[in-house]
Design a protein around this nucleic acid. Structure first.
Lengths: 199, 199
DNA sequence: GTCTATAGCTTGATAGAC
DNA sequence: GTCTATCAAGCTATAGAC
């Protein structure tokens, strides 16, 4: 188990993730992936014998886990969820501006492409989103949001992020991300106030 | 100006719109479009000499306008914006369920695909979204939401719709659309209450 | 306006040397 | 594990008959 094979595999997955984010699944050819990952067709099929489908599944799982860890670490780095969520939307807006509106959700583009046309990949993405929603709901509940409200607000949070990415990227203006962020923060603050009143 | 040419052109655009919604821009070939629209390559290039790019631009403009009219007619069919927005999210959830989670936003998939890789199409979609946001903001303002809040809530509304479509399609469960709908309705109700208090 | 045929290129995938 | 060469099938776009 040398280091070479691991590095190549990781380069391929990283390159695939970046290309998926930029142009989606169908527009990304294996040749472009191999070139960006400094690998060859041979290496690619060595690590992913199932071809493009297997590589896509591995990439979506990998970048899905990575994005969840990133978001949760931003939220956990704040003193409370509300502050954490604010930081999260601010960070997303900053990253959009800093990367010329390329660096966004590593899943969403492929998700919409395959949701109704590639059942195996749809299931992979379904698992990724479920994991995000579970993590967010747990974090909200830990700060005092009642269980059921926490699950609903987790959905609102992720949907707002995704909608914010879409509008911001198309407009090349991250203010949409900031707007949806304010709305999510207000909704969570409301839920916490209501919970404290013991409603 | 007979009826024949108009019908063919419209069939091509309608077929393109449906295929874009289902699988996006790159995965949709001109052959599939011609077949679904009961046309031939010759007819397709007769109406759209610019090829796929021109056809895509025309289709996105057309379905963008159509979707705006649909949404605004649902909202305007209600006695007030809040009720209208509620109806809007309910209708979107119903349509998702009724169409096996295929019938969603006719723009979003292509939008994410091209936002960072096809500048002319990105600009077309930018115009479509701007038109949606303007229409929604005007409708909110007409019901008493202060101008600035109305623009922000319009963004929240569209982003919630898009995020709800994404999560619902991937999960094959429209409850996400219902959740984001409740959040948007609550936010608008808050804004109206605040405006009436004269804050 | 509609049709068929085809050019020229790219795609995902395979084979076999090293 | 990595590389190159290659295949069959797909793509967008064009040409020219009708």
């Amino acid at each position: 188990m040398g280091t070479t094979e691991v590095d190549t595999r990781e380069r391929i997955v990283a390159a695939t993730s970046a290309l998926f984010m930029q142009q989606g699944y169908s527009a990304t050819g294996l040749k472009a992936i191999a070139k960006a990952g400094r690998a060859t067709t041979g290496s690619l099929y060595h690590f992913f014998p199932g071809g493009k489908a297997e590589l896509a599944a591995a990439t979506l799982r990998h970048s899905g886990r990575g994005y969840e860890e990133l978001v949760m670490s931003v939220i956990d780095g704040a003193p409370d969820v509300v502050t954490g969520l604010r930081a999260c939307f601010a960070a997303a807006a900053d990253l959009l501006r800093a990367t010329d509106y390329v660096d966004a959700c590593p899943i969403a583009t492929v998700a919409l492409e395959v949701a109704s046309s590639d059942e195996p990949l749809r299931q992979v993405i379904d698992e990724v989103f479920r994991s995000w929603l579970d993590a967010a709901a747990r974090r909200l509940a830990a700060d005092g949001v009642p269980e059921e409200r926490a699950q609903e607000l987790a959905i609102v949070f992720v949907a707002a992020l995704e909608g914010g990415f879409l509008l911001s990227r198309v407009a090349r203006d991250a203010s949409a991300m900031e707007s949806v962020g304010r709305a999510v923060v207000a909704a969570v603050e409301d839920a916490l106030a209501e919970a404290r009143r013991g409603s």
